[in-house]
Design a protein around this nucleic acid. Structure first.
Lengths: 385, 385
DNA sequence: CACTCTTGGAGAAACGTATCTCCGAAGGCT
DNA sequence: AGCCTTCGGAGATACGTTTCTCCAAGAGTG
């Protein structure tokens, strides 16, 4: 024991500074080697239970906390996952999809925590040194733009990336998205059935996947049913512009008798605009908007909303990513075999695997001329694209 | 150069695996020592500009990225700040103050990023191993309960902690909070001036600082002006309970003619309840609620809200924490000298320094019987408690 | 010329862990 | 009795930086 206490005499002669206890101190105090301490604490190696518990007890008594940095350096695993959102302004999160993002981030955090990982919020536009200064095991990217340099950089670094939103042209490991086209078509059909003759759209000017796919679906539908498109687009990141756009849409000579708004605040804005023009909802105007907020259950009248199910998306994205990191298929139902090896993705083996998650239409009074029962319908079941 | 290329011949004989380039590779390729590379890249040491730029160029060419783990291990700094929120359920964030929390977290992230730090979201109830596995330079704790074991643990580990919300009995380095008492008194006065005779309160059942201080302020005010308190409390983390409580409050025989709701959804819930009872706002019922959401600008009628200014709080909290970590006073106006040294806080030198931030009352139609001008007033200037 | 500075940079020691290799001893088997 | 196997554990190395210490050579100085 006495010999072991000084087995690796690297300490300087002066009494060591009164810092936190290291694994060496525990080893010395317990009269065992560093190896034994490490094994005992991590449940590895072949040790009798007695030794194991004794070491644990000593470690506890000394208040020993393993150094996360050292462990990360040694194992190459940090237990940290980056969460990135493309930012439109100087703020780290986008405004427009904020409720969606918040819910999604919450679910992602929860899912990660449940598997022993923590999330680091890192806007894509962060100072480069911040990105470089953090050991990330993987990254979740929300709605990466085409040719996202950040994703490419991560790919080159060998960091697995899973994106929320089908990526345009980025080497992601996997992606998850809603079936936006199906969702929009479902809403348009729903409004038609409720008696809408001319359906308008409140959309955005940015080029993200969500806006683009939704708008395209709308335009395609118009062509199909022979309706002249009637829509207004505004910069979705500008909170004030939405109200103006809503007003513009209802002020048009070819005023629609039903409107679908792509963004969260559109519901209240459209409702306010309708009041200004003396339009009654749903009698004169049918209303649906995409939102995760339940304030729309208590508006007058309650407004039908499309939920993108951010919780489900956040959970799935994180689980997919951790599967990729650990090289395990935890049963998310995605073909994980294509993700490895090596370096998480072989070049040129086709597009990365993607998952389409269903949306949920929460039907309330604003989109029904008759009995306002609260129904729920999934426009389309999930599946590979 | 050729000699330097193999200066630290620790590599195994077999050709090194095709991993990322390390600082050694850069040194070899540039024909300089490791020291020089480190100095050149970090802007330290005394090197001629020519050497510096050459090394940088080589590093760039090799795609060199310093290992964050190694740097953290060596320097003891990770650049990571924990963001902890007391959780009421199994979800990582509290529901009730969610909009507040989201805004606050956003501002905190922004402020941290601006100073080169990143935020890690870590619910207090996380698995212990997750906490232990992350090298944190400091932690922001939102509304720690009395005798919070987590805060004590962090204190013992020497991790500086700054709390959002005046801590009951925890060894925090510093804290920031709103002046909740002043805010409530300001609202009650505001409602009185608008003609309220009997002011009710919608409050929570939990014992967090916010709920407690606000309720106490209300009760104190009632005693002072001789009004019988009329309030309903509900578990604020339950989204459905709020509507029920709002209904209960307006159903009482001693129905109030003005109500202040402590939580974000109370506005819409109270509005809906008022409609059910045929009460017109503001004619029959004056309404104020605490919220960060701007949906209340578009309700019918628009509702007066109290903003706790989460952005300001988030920014201040983070700056205070980073000041403590770096031992610098960046000019936040708080007496930083008391935070050190050593180990960030000397025991027994009185209470930790705190800052009170002002709130903002956004007056809208719901709390005025006459001209609905949109005014802004700060109940009380900030200052030490 | 003998000396002191200054410049430019090399060497090596940590940081604290995980893990690969190896070894003695005790038991089991033929 | 010799050999093999398993048990329990020690030693040493590597992970990739930062930084403290030190040195050689040239430049200035009396």
């Amino acid at each position: 024991m006495t010999a072991a206490a000084n087995q690796s005499g690297r300490r300087p002669t002066t009494s060591r500074r009164l810092e936190r206890a290291g694994i060496r101190d525990v080893a010395a105090a317990a009269g065992v080697s560093i190896t034994t301490v490490s094994d005992a604490l991590n449940g590895k190696g072949r040790l009798p239970d007695e030794t194991r518990s004794r070491v644990r007890e000593v470690a506890e008594r000394l208040g020993y906390r393993p150094s996360a940095a050292a462990r990360t350096l040694r194992t190459g695993r940090s237990g940290l996952i980056g969460l990135t959102v493309t930012t439109y302004g100087e703020e780290p999160f986008t405004f427009t999809e904020f409720a969606y993002f918040a819910e999604m981030a919450r679910a992602a955090t929860s899912a990660a925590l449940g598997r022993g990982y923590a999330l680091v919020v890192l806007p894509a536009s962060s100072r480069h040194d911040v990105w470089g200064n953090i050991a990330l095991d993987g990254t979740v990217v929300i709605d990466p733009p085409d040719q996202d340099p950040l994703v490419s950089e991560l790919y080159r670094s060998g960091v697995p990336v899973v994106s929320d939103g089908k990526p345009g042209n980025c080497p992601v490991t996997a992606w998850v998205d809603n079936d936006h086209e199906a969702a929009v078509l479902g809403i348009l059909d729903h409004l038609s059935e409720a008696g809408a003759r001319r359906i308008g759209l409140l959309t955005g000017t940015s080029t993200d996947t969500y806006t683009r796919l939704s708008t395209e679906a709308y335009l395609g539908w118009c062509t199909k049913v022979g309706q002249e498109p009637v829509y207004e687009a505004y910069p979705a990141h500008d909170p004030a512009a939405g109200a103006v756009a809503a007003d513009r849409l209802l002020a048009r000579p070819d005023r629609p008798d039903a409107v679908y708004g792509l963004f969260d605040p559109n519901g209240t804005d459209l409702l306010a605009a309708a009041r200004r023009y003396g339009l009654r909802v749903p009698d004169d105007l049918l209303l649906v908007c995409c939102s995760e907020s339940d304030v729309y259950a208590a508006t007058e009248p309650p407004i039908t909303t499309l939920s993108l199910k951010p919780r489900k998306i956040g959970t799935t994205v994180v689980n997919l990513l951790i599967d990729a990191i650990e090289g395990v298929d935890s049963g998310t139902g995605v073909d994980i075999a294509r993700l490895f090896p090596p370096r998480f993705r072989t070049a040129g083996n086709g597009p990365p695997p993607g998952t389409l998650m269903p949306t949920e239409l929460i039907v309330r009074a604003s989109s029904q001329r008759r009995s306002p029962r609260t129904t729920v319908s999934a426009p389309r079941p999930p599946g590979e694209v």
